[in-house]
Design a protein around this nucleic acid. Structure first.
Lengths: 344, 344
DNA sequence: CGAGAAAGTTGAAATGTTTCATTGACCGTA
DNA sequence: TACGGTCAATGAAACATTTCAACTTTCTCG
């Protein structure tokens, strides 16, 4: 009857001598079927090696048991930590998580979204290349539950989960000021990234409110937020005339900070004495650096978890209201800003 | 006619005034339908905002357009690089990639495999917790194309793609010996991991073939291959009596090496002069370390790409033969073993 | 013993797509 | 005019599951 084919409910029903409906009941509402038949069906299932066909189930149900996360940059561990948080929440809801990577390219992002739409995923979490992109509106219009992660989007058009980047910038620079630095570089870019603007803004705000000269907060733009850009920023820093050269740098993410740290140490600087460094994100590798990095910690997993919860609410709760969740970053001081002598 | 529902081929057909079959043809074999009707159908599609339902398509086709990778440890960037390689190959074959993470737990791995089976994925790539696990045989028995990544499995029971770990161990230790080290530590574990055994074996082989005293190659076992285990190995190393203390360490992966490096530098050692360090894998962060790490490079992306190609062959080629692909690792010498004075 | 309720089981319909044998229209040639 | 041939389009069947109204059997109580 089943020649090579993988067995279906029909085969199980035949083997157990019951109807299709009963087999389905055994799987979906075991309580309505008598112990005797249930057992018989279960035996038939394991004998045949039956495995539910998820496509058929989905087709009938109209939606899949899957959530998706479209991450921005697979080379930055930050996003994997966020994904991990999402995964945990998905797990709790008995859903699978589909992870995509746009690699900061809008075109890839669109391809992924298209596929996810075809897959009829329950909801989409995304750290978009551009939060204002039209293809995101498209999702909203279609009624696909969507949550923006680590970015924000105007107009309450959807939920988002982010961190107060302005505040992050403030506490980073405040910390450096407290450590006695009077000339500080801010390293990051491109400033088309919303976060770059906000972290920089926070940095400037606190700097001025401390009564410092704006000229002593030097913005060093980069083309991307990568280790190698961090290195090259370090070279530019070293090239500044000594009286203009900052004694501390606030890097807009940890990858930049790691690059800068490496370049500095390679050039013979002592960190933090000659150059103090603050990063942002507090990825695992920040604390693992040769000189452990002071960093502005984002609750990475928590970000993902919260986002997943929002998207699930949107998917299941009929009177869901869009929410813009914002977490508070906090400074984790380590050796890259606090010299051993001074610490403790 | 369609009230709120997302439109189906049927709706498109009605709107365009053609039959279901024609709409399907427009999507799957546009060449058989006349330009006039094709255009009409396409207009109807975009007007209705039609999106193919992948579940229905899969149900009919019997298999999904998806590959899956079950990675071993999401906190190790190595596996993300492998995944990236798989993704690229999947992309070329116009397939999606489903990424799962077993986090080194056999139970999670089994749950994931079960789900993937239900999903009827085209093939499964996996870096298993235990290559000998019974649930892997299960897959083979079911005829699901499967490739083991970065591990091997006896008996030609399936394809695998790996790196010659024995050779990796040899070249790492050979390099250290060439640099003049006479007492070397090998750091890693647990030795239930196949790779640990093989890399260690390679290390011992070359050591003896160089005529060195086996007692001068000191195995320092760890509980896991993580940064923090690397740190604690560093402490144990420092605790050794000076005349027994090695001047170089071969860490069985880069995370360990990073941890060891950090601990060493924190304790005031100069790397490589007081302690030389070699890692394994050559992840991105190895070259980004404060003292750039010498490491045994595995072709990470290539590993993934090759594995994907094998799984695709198994899925599509009726006279597929299982293959055990093995790549050759190569040493990338950096500052952590070659002091600046000596280099060039 | 019989009526009614409860428990258990059934069978058909529905989901959205693809495939393929069949039909229909049109054209040129014998 | 009739015939074969090509090109387009059609409609029904198939995929594997879930749901639900309807049916049968068993149980309970008067």
């Amino acid at each position: 009857m089943l020649n090579g084919r993988t067995p279906s409910v029909k085969d199980v029903a035949a083997a157990a001598g019951v109807s299709l409906g009963t087999v389905s009941n055994v799987m979906n509402r075991p309580e309505v079927v008598s112990a005797r038949t249930r057992e018989r069906v279960e035996r038939a299932m394991s004998e045949l090696g039956f495995v539910r066909n998820e496509s058929a189930r989905q087709l009938r149900a109209g939606t899949s048991r899957t959530l998706a996360y479209v991450m921005l940059d697979g080379t930055n561990p930050f996003f994997h930590d966020v994904a991990q948080g999402i995964e945990l929440a998905a797990e709790d809801a008995d859903l699978s998580l589909f992870i995509c990577n746009s690699n900061s390219r809008a075109a890839r992002e669109e391809v992924h979204l298209d596929r996810l739409l075809q897959q009829r995923v329950q909801g989409i979490l995304i750290t978009p290349v551009d939060p204002a992109a039209a293809h995101l509106d498209e999702l909203t219009r279609r009624g696909v539950p969507m949550v923006i992660v680590d970015r924000v989007r105007g107009a309450d058009s959807c939920c988002s989960v982010s961190v107060d980047d302005v505040l992050g910038g403030r506490i980073a620079v405040e910390h450096l000021a407290e450590q006695g630095h009077t000339r500080v570089a801010v390293v990051g870019g491109p400033d088309s990234l919303g976060q770059v603007g906000e972290r920089l803004q926070g940095a400037r705000e606190i700097w001025e409110s401390l009564g410092r000269d704006p000229d002593d907060l030097i913005y060093l733009p980069t083309d991307a937020m990568t280790v190698s850009e961090g290195r090259s920023a370090g070279e530019r820093l070293a090239g500044l005339p000594a009286r203009r050269r900052p004694t501390a740098a606030f890097c807009l993410n940890d990858l930049l900070a790691l690059g800068l740290l490496q370049q500095g140490i390679g050039a013979g600087l002592r960190v933090p004495d000659d150059l103090a460094i603050v990063g942002f994100d507090d990825i695992e590798f920040a604390s693992a650096a040769a000189v452990p990095l002071t960093s502005v910690r984002q609750p990475r997993q928590e970000l993902g978890r919260a986002a997943a919860q929002l998207v699930l609410d949107e998917a299941t709760n009929p009177n869901h209201r869009h929410e813009q969740l914002q977490f508070t970053p906090e400074l984790v001081a380590r050796a890259s800003t606090v010299s051993r002598a001074r610490a403790r």
